[in-house]
Write a protein that binds this DNA or RNA. Structure first.
Lengths: 278, 278
DNA sequence: CCCCTCTGTTAGATAAGTCTAACAGGATAG
DNA sequence: CTATCCTGTTAGACTTATCTAACAGAGGGG
């Protein structure tokens, strides 16, 4: 969701994002590419920048002029191209984010390499310093957490991996487990008891707290906007036995029986509570 | 980092991202805002869209025309505005991502609410379906992992929280712990032994595997591009005792003694190995 | 009934970021 | 020495996304 009225203009937003005024996503990309080429080649050629970014040469020339105007590269037509200290500093920062995100998505979460790389390209420009710090701390914690003794990630892969369909698993979170022993004891979060949509009657509202499903079902639900954190109101049973209908942001979404059993709500007593945290 | 030459044109990229051709970030924002307003108000007014997005009304009119041309809203000048099923479906998907990311950043990682919301705005357009699926699975796993018995997040907060500076902690990952008992036994990852930059001699290359530091130090390193996943070469000791200099993407980065002790490398035997995974 | 206010439109300007076409300058090959 | 090729520039066009200024319609107050 976009920013609210209080943080209005584009300029204000840029500043807020801690991105030096006037530096767009595209320009950040150029800086990063220049840094990368410079690390491997003695001279940085327009040609190579264009190839790396997938654009034509005149586009690069234009970008270099904008970067020069911002004081981030030393550029004069047909001369050697170098990053200024300011430019190199920004480029390093972006590149670090890129590497970290690629690694997080790929090695940690198990996203396929090509997608991890592509997503990192998009995400790197939008992660604030604060979020990056928290995320790196989180990764650091997981990788060194003594409680799980280094088994954490392998176990995650076992349960939620793509090719580990027949893994034996005792996690309640594991789709296999769920399939075998459907519900021995309702899941909890803190002191709240979570309930699957299938068990709730029309009128109940709540926030989606868990999606206990395998990859395919999870993706199907995500396409319709059903993901943890979303506010939902149960509006009726579906046509089939066990099916349900829920209201999400004003839209009616029908759920098949399997789906209705997979979506767990953290219910609230009141029916009308659509003040909605943004 | 931007895409490589193989996935060249903007059109190709849009398709790849699974974003229907011609639908930009800004337009996705408009769809999301319209959905949100529609869920609360019987009619959706241009005025309100403008306010929510922080732009002027004529900008909204223009955007609505583009959305109408894409078949995502039913729009005729001065008439009621409604999302088409296709538009509502996209809007739901984006909104779900937004909610999930806000929750992940805020509640899970502990990012401050305002920043979490703002980052979610930027990230929501760049997370592929695959990454989202993996990330939600990861969260699901953590929240229900029997090995850590639900203590996982509170413990994370204890060790890496902002205001829990004096928490007693036995995690090797914890900055407090590190400060007290600096290094009893080198950290490992798999069969590799990780080594702090401070202990390495010039010429050694490796990937940053851990940053064992508190928030302030971590942020300071991140500003210079030093974050897990980055390729680094140790190029010398610094001026001070315990300080060091490393080369990151062709840039010389000096490290203070504390910093050199905080950055752990997964070292490789060969010196020149800058084929660099992107 | 006329004027004022609010909502929303049109018109026209600007900036970023891309493209193609055409030109300029240097190296190389005959 | 000239023709050719490669690199990079300039020129001009287009799209997206934004702005301001000015106009249009609808409702209410006097």
């Amino acid at each position: 969701m976009p920013r609210s009225a209080s943080t209005a203009s584009t300029a204000a937003r840029a500043e807020e994002t801690r991105r030096p005024a006037g530096l767009s996503e595209a320009l950040e990309d150029y800086l990063e590419i220049i840094l990368q080429i410079a690390a491997r080649h003695p001279v940085v050629r327009v040609r190579d920048i264009a190839r790396a970014k997938g654009v034509r040469m005149p586009t690069v020339t234009a970008a270099l002029k904008r970067l020069a105007a911002l004081g981030l590269v030393d550029y004069q037509a047909r001369e050697h191209l170098v990053l200024t200290p300011a430019g190199a500093s920004i480029a390093s920062r972006i590149r670090g984010r890129h590497r970290f995100l690629t690694r997080f998505l790929g090695r940690m979460l198990g996203v396929s390499p090509a997608v991890a790389r592509r997503d990192a390209c998009g995400l790197e420009h939008h992660l604030s310093a604060e979020s990056l710090e928290r995320l790196t701390a989180f990764v650091e914690y997981i990788e060194t957490c003594p409680e799980v003794g280094g088994d954490f990630l392998p176990r995650f892969r076992d349960c939620f991996g793509r090719d580990a369909r027949q893994a034996i698993c005792t996690h309640t979170a594991c789709p296999q487990y769920a399939r075998q022993a459907s519900s021995r004891g309702a899941p909890r979060r803190g002191s709240h008891v979570l309930a699957p949509v299938a068990s709730l009657r029309p009128g109940v509202c709540g926030e989606v707290a868990r999606i206990q499903a395998d990859e395919r079902l999870r993706v199907r639900l995500q396409r319709r906007g059903l993901v943890a954190g979303v506010e939902v109101e149960v509006i009726g049973a579906g046509s089939l036995r066990g099916a349900a209908r829920v209201r999400v942001d004003g839209r009616d979404v029908p759920l098949a029986p399997r789906e209705a059993r997979a979506v767990f709500l953290d219910t609230r007593p009141a029916r009308e509570a659509r003040d909605a945290r943004t």
